[in-house]
Amino acid sequence: MFGLSAFSPALLGRYLVVGLFNTAASYAFYCALLYAGVAYPLASLGSLLGGIFLSFVTLGRYVFVSRLRGRFSRFLMVWGGLYFLNIGLLNVLIGVGFNPYIAGIVAAPPTIGLAFLLQRFVVFPPAAETPGAESASLNSDNAA
């Protein structure tokens, strides 16, 4: 179906670096809103919404090198599903005795891995497996 290029070390590396950047930027936005006097529930909401949009753009453009038009609803559905899956995993881990902090650490790697797969193959599927196909597709789209 898809070749090994769908899992290249460079792609995985970009995914992790962009994910760290997005997390730091979302947290910085949350802090800036708090500093500006916004109540923490609204600051958290603003940070979440900003983080979702930032992640969509940065993952689509810089990680998966894909056009963005028509993909945002899939992105939201994938992250909605991942949220509920993560909550279920946390519930199981806490139920067998993990404290919530450790459960969050244990649940993160499988959630991150599944997020990569779903974004790679559902939200931003690879172009045809020919060299240059993705960049040619981007050049012809030119817009988000």
Rank of each mutant, 00 (worst) to 15 (best):
M1Q: 08
M1H: 05
G3N: 09
L4I: 14
L4E: 10
A6C: 06
F7W: 07
F7I: 13
F7L: 10
F7M: 09
S8M: 13
A10P: 00
A10V: 14
L12I: 10
G13N: 11
G13S: 12
G13F: 10
V17E: 15
V17K: 12
V17Q: 11
G19K: 04
G19Y: 04
F21D: 03
N22I: 06
A25S: 08
A25F: 11
S26N: 05
S26Q: 08
L33P: 01
A36H: 12
A36Q: 08
A36P: 02
G37D: 12
V38C: 08
V38H: 06
Y40Q: 14
L45R: 06
L45V: 15
G46V: 02
L48Y: 08
L49F: 06
G51M: 14
G51N: 08
G51I: 14
G51Q: 08
I52K: 04
I52P: 00
I52E: 12
I52R: 01
I52N: 00
S55M: 03
S55I: 03
S55D: 04
V57F: 07
T58Q: 05
T58R: 03
G60W: 00
R61Y: 13
Y62A: 09
F64D: 03
V65Y: 02
S66I: 02
R67S: 11
R71D: 04
F72E: 00
F72A: 00
S73T: 14
F75N: 03
L76S: 12
M77P: 02
V78L: 10
V78P: 07
W79N: 14
G80Y: 14
G80L: 14
Y83S: 13
F84R: 05
G88N: 10
L89P: 08
L90Q: 08
L90K: 01
N91E: 06
N91V: 05
L93C: 07
I94C: 00
G95M: 14
G97W: 02
G97F: 07
P100Q: 06
Y101K: 09
Y101N: 07
I102K: 04
I102C: 03
I102N: 09
A103T: 03
A103G: 01
G104C: 09
V106M: 03
A107W: 02
A107I: 02
P109Q: 09
P110S: 05
P110F: 03
I112L: 10
G113N: 04
L114Q: 11
L114K: 09
L117Y: 03
L118K: 04
R120Q: 08
F121G: 00
F121I: 11
V122G: 02
V123Y: 04
P125Y: 06
P125C: 05
P126A: 01
P126Q: 07
A128K: 11
E129K: 05
G132M: 13
E134S: 05
S135T: 15
A136R: 12
A136G: 12
S137A: 15
S137K: 13
D141W: 10
N142A: 13
N142Y: 13
A143F: 12
